[in-house]
Design a protein around this nucleic acid. Structure first.
Length: 207
DNA sequence: ACCGAGATTTACT
DNA sequence: GTAAATCTCGGTC
């Protein structure tokens, strides 16, 4: 349980292709060490944002401003933005294209008591993009633009997803054709995802 | 200076 | 299912 705070993942896969990278992220363990507390979870839900050609992306059409500036860093960096008072975390992909993957949910692993304290509740700790950043202690002011695998935020090998399900992304119904793209990927049967309905699968959808 | 949108969350009907 | 809370910043006047 007391693993060293060190990554064992080669993040080179983030450079290749964003949709592929998004699926590769499922099952990896995101680990943070904030305020001396270690918290982590296995990634269960992600969304890909394909940059200049994706009407739902912050960088559609090459838009570049103070808000999204960090999206123009290369793969392996972290883009954190705030909306409605909540923080959302993306891992950047590609080299020169402003694309990335939004981490929408994880399955809690380490530091669950700390998560409960940060969240102020006992359940639904990490089943949404704003919830998991709160549980993991991620904020825009402290973490936007940083490189992965430093002393605060690392990726580790975690679990192998059983079946990966592709669905439309959430919250972008007004983005015309982009609303129909199947750029959201979830571990089928895992209950730690946003808007989960139904029954959890055996083993929560992991192999 | 003002207005409002937005990759959200929560409580309430 | 609907609404309000709450933060940041671009667009516009």
């Amino acid at each position: 349980m007391e693993d060293k705070f060190q990554s064992d993942v080669d993040i080179g896969f983030l450079k290749k292709e964003t949709l592929h990278a998004a699926k590769q992220l499922l099952g990896l363990e995101v680990v943070t060490r904030v305020g001396g507390e270690v918290t982590s979870g296995y990634i269960t839900e992600v969304e890909a944002y394909l940059g200049v050609g994706d009407k739902a992306a912050h960088t559609f059409g090459g838009r570049r401003n103070r808000k999204n500036e960090m999206m123009y860093r290369p793969y392996g960096h972290v883009y954190v933005y705030t909306m409605h008072g909540h923080h959302c975390m993306n891992f950047l992909t590609r080299g020169n294209e402003p694309e990335g993957v939004l981490i929408r949910a994880v399955e809690p692993r380490l530091g669950i008591d700390v998560m409960k304290e940060r969240r102020g509740r006992e359940i639904n700790l990490t089943d949404g993009p704003g919830k998991l950043t709160q549980s993991l202690g991620i904020t825009r002011s402290a973490h936007n633009g940083m490189m992965l695998n430093n002393e605060v935020l690392i990726l580790r090998h975690g679990r192998a997803p059983g079946n990966i399900l592709a669905t439309p992304r959430i919250g972008i119904d007004n983005k015309e054709e982009a609303a129909d793209y199947l750029y959201r990927f979830i571990v089928e049967g895992n209950p730690h995802i946003s808007r989960f309905k139904g029954r959890a699968a055996e083993n929560h959808g992991w192999k």
